[in-house]
Design a binder for these strands. Structure first.
Lengths: 156, 156
DNA sequence: CCTATTATCTCGTTGAGCGAGATGTTCGAC
DNA sequence: GTCGAACATCTCGCTCAACGAGATAATAGG
C-alpha cells in the first residue's frame, strides 16, 4: 500500500501541464486564424525564428524536415508564407541549389506583438519566485522535455 | 538600469516551456501517426476521456464545439473514430436527438499504453522535489494557464 | 396536432499535404 | 573540360479533412 500512496499532488501537476499545453496550442491557433494562416505556418515561423536566433541558415529542405513535410508540401508552405509577405526566398550564395528562407521584419513584429504580452506576464510571474523555486521549475521543465524526447527517440 | 536587469533566467524558462509544448505536440503527433489517426482525432479522444473522468456525457455537438469544428466536420470526425473502433455512437436516452459519444475500452488502453510511461516518468521526477518546490511548479503552471486564457478571452 | 427549435447528418467545394517525377546545381572521375 | 552521379527544389495529379448550405429527425410549446 506504499507505492500507490497519495500521488494526487503529482497527478494534479501532470494535468496542469497538459492544460497549459492545450491552452498554448489554442493561443497559437488564434494567432494563426487572425492572420489567415494555418497551424503549420505558425510552426514554420517559430522554427525559422529559432534558427535565426541561433544564427543558422534555414533552407527549404531543413524547414520541411523540421515540420515533417515532404518536398511538395514544403514548397507549398513557403509559397504561402512568401505570398503573405512573411518570408523571402534567397538563393544560397555558396551553394546555389539551396533556397535559404528569411523571415521578414514584419513577421517578427507580428509575432512579438501577439506573444510579447504573454511572455511579459510569464516573466513577471517568474519574478515572484525565489531562486530555489525557479530552479525547481527550470529543472522540472527540462526533465519533462528530455523525458518526451527520450520516449520518442526510443520508439522511433 | 534596474527594470531591464538580468532577465536571462526568466527567458530561459519561457523558452523551456515552449520547448516542452513543442515536444508534447510532437509526441501526440507520433501517437496519431502510429495509429493512423489525425491530430484532431487525438484531441477528440483526449476531450472525450476528460469528459468521462468528469462523469459528463459528451455529445457530438459539444465535442465539435470543444474542437472548433462545425457540424459537418464533427460528423466526419466521429465517423472516422467509430470506423476505427475508438468510439461508439449512443443515442441519448432522455433526449433522442442527442448522440452521446463513448470511448471504447480499447482506445483507453491504447492511450494509456502510449502516454502512461511518460506520465510515470513525470511523477517520478516530481517526487524528487519537496513540497515547497512542487507548490512553485504548480503555481507557475496555473499562472501560465490562466494568463493564456485571459489573453485569449480579452482578445475574443 | 402543428410550428419553432434543437441535434445531427448529407452534399458539394476548398485547400493542405503526399507520391512521383522534372529541372537546375554541384562535385568527383576521367 | 565534360560526363554522370548525387543533391535541392519545384511541378503535377491525387487524396482526404474541414467548411458552408441545406436536409432530416426529434423535443417542447401553444
Amino acid at each position: 500500500m506504499n507505492g500507490m500512496a497519495p500521488r494526487g499532488s503529482e497527478m494534479e501537476i501532470v494535468h496542469l501541464l497538459r492544460a497549459v499545453t492545450v491552452e498554448l496550442g489554442l493561443h497559437s491557433a488564434r494567432f494563426a486564424q487572425r492572420h489567415a494562416m494555418h497551424p503549420t505556418d505558425v510552426r514554420a515561423l517559430i522554427a525559422l525564428m529559432d534558427a535565426a536566433r541561433a544564427r543558422e541558415e534555414m533552407t527549404a529542405g531543413r524547414l520541411g524536415a523540421a515540420l515533417g513535410l515532404n518536398s511538395a508540401g514544403t514548397t507549398a508552405l513557403v509559397d504561402r508564407l512568401e505570398r503573405a509577405g512573411h518570408v523571402r526566398r534567397v538563393r544560397g550564395e555558396r551553394d546555389r541549389r539551396k533556397v535559404v528562407i528569411e523571415v521578414s521584419e514584419g513577421a517578427v513584429e507580428l509575432g512579438w506583438a501577439f506573444f510579447g504580452p504573454l511572455i511579459d506576464r510569464t516573466v513577471v510571474l517568474l519574478e515572484t519566485y525565489d531562486e530555489r523555486e525557479r530552479a525547481a521549475i527550470r529543472g522540472f521543465l527540462t526533465g519533462v522535455r528530455d523525458a518526451v524526447a527520450e520516449e520518442d527517440g526510443g520508439e522511433a
